[in-house]
Write a protein that binds this DNA or RNA. Sequence first.
DNA 1: CTCCCTTGTGCACGTTTGTGCATAGTGCTT
DNA 2: AAGCACTATGCACAAACGTGCACAAGGGAG
Lengths: 324, 324
Amino acid sequence: MDPSRHSEALRAAQMYYLQDLTMDAIARELRTSRSTVSRLLSSARESGLVQIQIRNPLDTGPELEGRIRQRYGVDVHVVPVLETLNDAETLDRVAMQAARTIGPVVDSNAIIGVAWGSTLSAVSRHLTRKITHDSVIVQLNGAGNMHTTGITYASDIMRRFGSAYGARVEQFPVPAFFDHAATKTAMWNERSVQRILELQAKMSIAIFGVGSVDADYPSHVYAGGYLDEMDLNILATSDVVGDVATVFFRGDGSSDGIILNERSTGPALAELRQVRRRICVVSGVSKIKGLRGALAAGLATDLILDEATARRLVDYEGLPAANG
Amino acid sequence: MDPSRHSEALRAAQMYYLQDLTMDAIARELRTSRSTVSRLLSSARESGLVQIQIRNPLDTGPELEGRIRQRYGVDVHVVPVLETLNDAETLDRVAMQAARTIGPVVDSNAIIGVAWGSTLSAVSRHLTRKITHDSVIVQLNGAGNMHTTGITYASDIMRRFGSAYGARVEQFPVPAFFDHAATKTAMWNERSVQRILELQAKMSIAIFGVGSVDADYPSHVYAGGYLDEMDLNILATSDVVGDVATVFFRGDGSSDGIILNERSTGPALAELRQVRRRICVVSGVSKIKGLRGALAAGLATDLILDEATARRLVDYEGLPAANG
DNA sequence: CTCCCTTGTGCACGTTTGTGCATAGTGCTT
DNA sequence: AAGCACTATGCACAAACGTGCACAAGGGAG
């Protein structure tokens, strides 16, 4: 953008947001029309000059937030959404609030791991710009499957993150699952793959949704041709409740002995837990089972979810976490 | 405030600012009228739930900000104000922007030193609330003079700071200047005074304006009956250009041998320089002389000033700082 | 129980803001 | 130099918003 326009936008934003002038008054000072000021302000918000955050006081009492925070030791953002809305609309609003909540967390020199899926796709559509330097977006897990390379879908998500934060994008051009564990082992020794794995090892932020085996409209992973009949059977018989970045876990958070994970390209749970900030976005009560597993596994430090799901989460509170 | 109203305000703010719903839509979800939503949002902003900041990219090019920052090593916020506006209006807008800029800096457990004067008074009127814990507002210098104890004026400022940040207020009930340096020495040994001095020594933030000897409408200090004829003569003959919290300095930033300072109750400049964050607010080109002295003395880490004054500051840029 | 005071609500109105459209400006190509 | 494509601007209208006012609900005091 024209740099002088940028600085006009900055002036306008200061006058509007910090000095409480009306657009009309600003227009007179800048010797332009009010509509131009309106557009300048849009672009100031759009380009991340203006940062709006809601800080909900942590001493929020015995509300949903407090209870979830206490129980699972995660930082919670409950998105207020009428329970009567349909799934798509709920997802949209959770995604928008998630995108704006993530904004302030992202900083220069960050290495940000991003998963893919319908949730992340929605989030990526609502990101607000923020100028950072030397940040990197790294894909958490491969996206290819039997039918497509999955490239466009996952890479759109990555690209949106990259352009919102002015960051370099590192894709992970492998399938979501290898057919043979041996291939994975081989590939993992390739330098091109190792470069990605090393980036992942240095992630400062990871952003992901959760898959849940019994979701009404199931995650891509369970429906999209990533797994064959036999794989799905295996999942069903091994108490798997969900996944994060195509790595599966049980209701108690354990993942040992789930052989599918040996063919999966996502980061091992232990590895993911090394990341300082791990942001989990969940929309829709049908993901509750996977979500509880993910929480039991300690995969998230921050949780953004809709109100109905949050409520469902604490309704189960009496039960120990292990009994998914 | 009613706690349920508070949480309604939070919900409304999330929906409005993070989900981009209209007030009308929010009203329907909350089963109330649009006007109520409007008021909820007001109160959310009012009470500091909503934080709006403008982050001006530091690589702002060869603009005013960049030049001042480079030259004086301070973080600059130039307040865009038409140069044709009168002093009062300029002050008001600088103060408002200053108040909102200070907001994000204040945090829990802060000890905040606050000076008094027309600038700080204006700032204090525009503070936005922010909930902090265990913060303290401490008065930097006494406010009494020959005619009044100055209590109400200075204490109003302090009180406003205190209530905006939910902080304890510690006043400094001494005159601005003692008549005799010996009295100051004596008082400084009093435990009640020492308590304040100790707090000042632990300040994490200091907020002050500057006085300038030749300001068209001179600071309280030079006009308000704080100094007698002889004192003013002394100032005139010792190259003093201004003051911060009633401590005087010369154009080159030095303050040694200015005997008036021995009777002043403000913190010695060396002491002030110990404070991590020192925010200086300046409105009006007539303060330029004092401002340049203060900058030469390295009193500020952050500078908030109007555009005209900023421009004036860089116009002098060719001259070495020492030649006020 | 009644009165009065305080607090919060919705309505209606005027103000402020967003946006489609026609136009003017700008820079690039041929 | 002319033509073209793209962008930014202002206008006019519609949508969204803030606020004075009248009224209702609740809670003490007498």
